[in-house]
Amino acid sequence: MDPRRLTLKPVRWLGAPAPGGLLLPAAAPSRETMYAPRGVYFDDRTVIVADSGNHRVLIWHGFPERDHAPADVVLGQPDFTSEGPRLLHLPTAVAVYEGRLFVADAWHHRILIWNEVPTSSGAPPDAVIGQASMDGVLPNRGGPVHPLGLYWPYGMAYLAGRFYIADTGNRRVLGWNGIPEGDRPPDVVLGQPDGYTGLENRGKGVSADAFRWPHALAGDETRLYVADAGNHRVLGFSPHPPGDRPADLVLGQSDFNRNFELPHVPQGPCRMRFPYGVALCAFGLAVADTANNRVLLFADVPERGAFYPAQAVLGQADFEASGENRWQGVAPDTLCWPYGLWCHKGRLAVADTGNNRVMFWELVA
């Protein structure tokens, strides 16, 4: 896409309003409110949000026709007004793959699966990845790092027939050929030399084959992107790696061996601070540059190299600003600690965590 046409505008606001823009949207659980949502998914039929702070998942059937629309279904709580960890403990990512709903139940160290998107509240999950049973909630199943366990699985993606999990606490990305059923070990481990190691940056320092906090995943049939938040960068693999290997692309750093952070000063179009979200869209790559309170848009990302500049920015007036809500107030086009991203047909959904809402942006023709 021509970078000069990379312009998006906010079109829908889910979550409570912000009175006068000077107060944050309400966070107490209800059908309309959210508390620090970290994940979002939508398609032609449904919108699904990981309402992380309320330890639940909210579902809208059909795209909401108005701002602040109430959810139709709640999972993880007995009703729309209950809170606290129950079935879910800080869910962080949601998605529908092959008609099945997947939820990254991060602080229970597992991925929960519903065989279809629930149409009524309280539906129980049908399967689990990362634990031996639905009752398991301990990191790495209560033992040391091993191929079948998970530790803070914050992100996931199903790309080119491979199911990936960002196993954040074990500093690795796991990949299965097809959606895993039962206790099947991963076919690919990225970021560690084997399935029994979980050292930060592989125990050797920042490099092209190591992660600090791999948090979110995105891509297509030929590309895999990993938001390595703790190293303030996004790594790209092209094609999909058949096994552990170095990345081909790095965004946010000048080379593969740096994790330079530049807090509280102008960032420009190349640098990132704690990028927790990534999505590949029809118009390019979107990165949630979380600590800079912005989303960076790359119209055309090369497959190899380093330090490419973004062509557009959401949430800030320019590439030099980084303030929460532009240091002004909560408005439809401001951001405060954006996390999860999802793209579908020219629209980008942003889990605007610090503002207790999800915002949908649309490509301007």
Score class of each variant (00 low, 15 high):
R347W: 05
A351Q: 11
M359R: 11
N355M: 04
R304I: 01
Q77C: 10
N259D: 14
S133D: 15
T353S: 15
G39C: 11
S82H: 01
G143N: 04
W337S: 07
A208C: 02
R233W: 07
D352S: 08
H89L: 12
G205E: 07
P125R: 00
D248F: 03
E362F: 09
E181S: 14
P338L: 13
P180H: 13
L174T: 10
N355C: 12
I179Q: 12
P118M: 08
V94D: 03
G268N: 09
E83G: 06
A160P: 03
G205V: 08
Q77F: 06
G191M: 11
D135K: 15
A247V: 05
P263G: 11
E200A: 13
V57L: 09
D194W: 01
G161V: 13
G39I: 12
R304V: 11
N257T: 15
R31E: 15
E200S: 11
G142V: 12
E32H: 10
N115V: 02
L296N: 01
V234G: 01
A104I: 01
W13L: 10
L24M: 11
Y276M: 14
V313T: 12
E320H: 11
R110A: 07
G155I: 02
G236R: 00
F211W: 03
F237K: 07
L88T: 05
Q192V: 07
R31Q: 15
V49L: 06
V47I: 10
V137L: 04
L297C: 00
L190E: 07
P275Y: 13
C270N: 06
Q192R: 11
A291S: 14
V295K: 00
S133N: 09
R38F: 12
V49P: 01
W213A: 06
P85F: 06
F260T: 14
I113H: 00
P153M: 12
W361K: 00
L112R: 05
V145D: 04
K345D: 11
A69Y: 00
R184T: 14
A93R: 15
G243R: 15
P147R: 01
F274D: 06
D333G: 06
Y225R: 03
G155C: 11
I48W: 10
P124S: 04
Y276V: 05
T119Y: 00
V94N: 07
D105C: 09
A104H: 02
L138V: 05
G284T: 02
A312S: 15
R86D: 13
P269M: 14
D352Q: 04
M34S: 04
A288L: 01
A16M: 05
L174G: 06
P17A: 00
T92D: 03
P266M: 02
R223A: 09
E303Q: 12
P185M: 06
P125I: 08
A36I: 08
I179P: 03
L217Y: 04
G346F: 08
P85D: 13
D187M: 05
C343M: 03
D44A: 15
P78G: 05
Q316C: 09
N257E: 10
R304D: 02
Q131A: 11
A247R: 13
R66M: 02
G175F: 13
L159P: 08
